[in-house]
């Protein structure tokens, strides 16, 4: 059964955190994030017929979103006067926790020093995907995924330590 545009957008809205996280992981500038955010929605819509329900909708969304960010998307223009990451954070919610939000900002900042593949791997890992699922999403063997995951976790901790973000 073909999904309608409205049904699709409702479903995307329910899982928009996935697109948000991928966009934020790959770009620090709000304009770039916004561009990637929109591009992912467009690619999801173009690929929606390929979702057969064999996997979870969220897993399928991750695949399309990561493929868009890794394979196809590239920053299009150079920004003048780059703003620091923490200055570009979204407006704080009512239950705003300044310390935790800063920590998350540092974490994203550290993650942006990783290459495109490692970003994807660590995001899937944090989201609780199993080694098998990560391997399937990236197209790697499970052994390779396990080795890479350990290496990236170590690398990320090193970056956080070196940059003085320890938390």
């Amino acid at each position: 059964m073909k999904i309608t545009e409205k049904e699709f957008l409702d479903k995307i809205n329910a899982h928009k955190g996935i697109i948000y996280k991928v966009s934020r992981m790959y770009f620090d500038e709000p304009e770039d994030r916004e561009d990637l955010f929109q591009e992912i929605i467009f690619q999801l819509w173009k690929s929606v017929d390929s979702f057969k329900g064999n996997s979870q909708f969220s897993s399928w969304m991750y695949r399309v979103a990561l493929n868009t960010a890794i394979v196809f998307y590239k920053k299009q223009r150079k920004r003048i006067g780059t703003t620091a990451d923490l200055k570009t954070e979204p407006v704080a919610p009512k239950d705003y926790d300044g310390v935790k939000d800063k920590q998350l900002g540092y974490f994203y900042k550290a993650i942006r020093q990783l290459d495109k593949i490692d970003k994807a791997l660590i995001l899937l890992y944090i989201e609780g995907y199993s080694g098998k699922e990560i391997a399937e999403t990236l197209g790697l063997s499970e052994t390779n995924t396990r080795v890479k995951t350990n290496r990236v976790k170590k690398q990320l901790k090193e970056i956080i330590k070196t940059e003085g973000y320890e938390f």
Binding site: L9, K16, Y20, K21, E34, F37, I41, F72, P90, L104
Partner: peptide, 26 residues
């Protein structure tokens, strides 16, 4: 912390046609 982030600045459009023109290198 990632899941509790405020995402109000990213809005899903009401129609696909409202999306900006694609910028993919391909």
């Amino acid at each position: 912390q990632m899941n509790s982030q405020n995402m109000d600045d990213q809005v899903i459009p009401n129609h696909i046609s409202e999306l900006k023109k694609t910028q993919l290198p391909i």
